[in-house]
Amino acid sequence: MALTDHTLPAERKAARVAGQERDTKLPLVSLVLAGLSLIGGLISAWMIFLYAPTDALQKDPQRIFYLHLACAWVGMLAFVLLAVTSIVALIRRNERWDWISRANAEVGAVFLTIALVTGSLWGRPIWGAWWVWEPKLTATLIMWFMYIGYLMLRSYMGRTLDSMRVGAVMAILGAIDVPIIYLAVNWWRGQHPTQVSQLPPEMLLTMLVVLLTFTIFYVFLVMQVYQLQRLQTLAQRLRLLVMR
C-alpha cells in the first residue's frame, strides 16, 4: 500500500491491512531460518571454544573476535540494505519497503551495539584500555550514532512520507560510512587487526561459519521485526478509525 494513497477512506485502508494480517503464524521460511540459526549457533559455539586453536599471543580473549566480527559484519550489512530499501521505498512510495527499512535499522543497531561492546571486552586485555580512538573504531562509533539518530528521527516524525524521505537521506549518508570503516586501517594507521585472511585454517573456517550463522539469524530477525511493523501500522490505523 502506497504512503501517498489518500483516495481510500480510513475504513478501507484498515480493512486492507487487516486482511494482510489474518495469518499471524510464522511462515515456513521463518521456521527454516530459525532452525538453521539454532543449529548454526550450536556449531559456532563448539568451533569457537573447542575447534579453533588458542591464539599464541592473545590467548583465550581472542575468541571474542569471532562474535565481534560477525556482529560488526551484520551491523554494516544492515545499513547498506537500509539505504537500498529506503531508496526503493522513495521511488515506489510503498510502505512495505519502509517497513523493511525500519526493521533493518532496528536489528542492525542491536548488532552494531554488540560489536562495540565485544570490541571493548576484547580490547581491554589486549590493548590495556576499554576504548582507543583509532580510525576503525571511531568510524564504527559514528555509524552507531547514525543508527540511533535514524531510529529516533523516524519515531519522532511518525509514519509519513516526509519521515521516509528524511530517513532515506540519513540511510544513504550512513551507507557511505561502510567503506570508510572497511578501509580505515589501510587509509590511516591504527591498532585494529587487519590480516584476517592470514589466519590458520581452523580459525578461518570458524570465522566463516560464525559469519554465515549470524547472517542467517539477521535475516530471521528482520523478518520478525517486519511483521511487527505491519502490526503497528494496523494498530495505528484502527486507533484512528475508532477515534473518528
Rank of each mutant, 00 (worst) to 15 (best):
V84H: 10
L69E: 12
T54F: 05
A45M: 09
T85Q: 06
P61V: 01
F49C: 05
H68F: 01
M76S: 04
I87S: 11
E95V: 11
D60C: 03
M47T: 06
R93T: 01
L42P: 00
L42R: 11
D98G: 05
A72F: 07
Q58V: 00
H68K: 10
E106F: 11
R93K: 15
K59Q: 05
W46Q: 07
I91F: 10
L67Y: 06
T54S: 10
A72H: 08
T54N: 08
E95L: 14
L90V: 04
R63T: 03
P53W: 06
A56T: 12
Q58C: 00
I64D: 09
L81M: 15
L90Q: 13
T54V: 13
I91P: 02
L82T: 03
F79L: 12
W97H: 08
E95R: 15
K59C: 03
K59A: 05
S101P: 11
V74M: 09
N104C: 14
S101G: 12
A70W: 01
V74K: 11
K59I: 03
I100P: 09
F65I: 06
F49N: 09
I100N: 07
S101N: 03
E106M: 13
L57E: 01
V84L: 15
I91Y: 13
I100A: 14
M76D: 01
F65E: 03
I43V: 14
V107G: 07
I91G: 04
I48S: 12
M76N: 10
L42V: 07
R63M: 02
A52W: 04
V88N: 14
R102Q: 11
A52M: 07
A105W: 04
R102G: 13
A52D: 03
L42I: 11
A56H: 12
P53A: 02
K59H: 11
K59S: 02
N94A: 08
